[in-house]
Simulated assay, not measured.
Amino acid sequence: TYAEHARAAAIAGHAVAEVSDFDALAEADLAVLVNPNNPDGRVIEKPRLLDLAALLHAKGGLLVVDEAFMDVGPVEHSLAGNVGEGGIVVLRSFGKFFGLAGVRLGFALTDALTAERLDAQLGPWAVAGPALEYGIRALSDAAWQADMRQRLAQDAGRLDILLGRFDVPVSGGTSLFRYLSFAGAPGLFSALGEQGVLVRHFAERPGVLRIGLPGSEPEWQRLESALAAWAARRKDAPKESGQ
């Protein structure tokens, strides 16, 4: 998931271990989880999170759940309404669903005592006034949010269909991005890049890509053309014996 969580914890003096097994988080003093996860879109169910939070809280620990993508996720698994129970911090962002990455704005939901500690450490000028105004207006515009969720869901479905036409499997993601995990990922990354279509690759996992949604009809057409060129190249490539 986000590398910055591990880096920030290490800077704060923690011995950091990144784990793929959810149950391993129970051994931590500070457990950080992204839900839905980036880039695979994995979601951990709320009851499991609450059980983990109670276990950590009982030993003086803390569960931090980064819900940057929960605006397009299954809200029934959000812990935003449970932070008063203690031992939970929920992080939210304006940079994903609202598309306001440039204002560098987010917020934390937690119990009153932890909120006071965060306020004291961040100081009074952590966020600029204009950024706050953007955030207030974004959160207040419920009609825009509903319309955007519907549009994103439709576009994500359209992208799945387009990728499927060229035998590109979708393994996960959210309605903001799709997660691709297959052997042809490195070749697809290069072929799309040659056509000026940028997707996210991961050096430590060459068989994985994350692809966002095209923003306009010309961009959809550009992606389709790039996929068609890649598929044609694969079809014409000589097959190795024994493969």
Rank of each mutant, 00 (worst) to 15 (best):
A229T: 06
G242N: 08
N82L: 08
D71P: 04
Q221R: 14
D119N: 10
A108G: 06
F69N: 01
A68F: 05
L213G: 01
N82G: 05
A143I: 10
R137N: 14
V34S: 03
F69I: 02
P39F: 00
R48P: 01
P74M: 10
G73E: 03
E67L: 11
T114L: 09
S181I: 02
V168A: 02
A203K: 11
L163R: 04
A10S: 15
A131W: 00
E45A: 14
K96Q: 15
A101N: 11
A231Q: 11
A24Q: 14
G84S: 14
S78A: 07
E204C: 07
A15P: 05
R92M: 10
P238Q: 05
D23W: 04
A12L: 14
V103K: 12
L163H: 05
R178C: 01
P47Y: 09
E224F: 04
S20P: 10
E217H: 03
G87R: 01
V34P: 00
F94A: 07
V65C: 14
D167N: 13
L100H: 05
E67C: 11
A183C: 08
V19Q: 09
R165K: 14
S216N: 08
G95E: 03
A146N: 11
G129K: 11
A126E: 12
I136Y: 14
Q121I: 07
A126C: 13
E67P: 03
P214D: 08
G172L: 00
D21T: 13
A10C: 06
L56Q: 01
A191Y: 01
L209T: 02
D23F: 06
I211Y: 00
V197M: 06
P214Y: 07
A231T: 08
N38A: 12
F97E: 01
R158M: 04
L188K: 04
F22W: 04
P130K: 06
F22N: 00
P39A: 07
G60P: 03
P74D: 15
V19N: 10
D160G: 12
G73V: 03
G164A: 05
P214W: 08
Q145K: 13
D40Q: 10
L192M: 10
G164D: 04
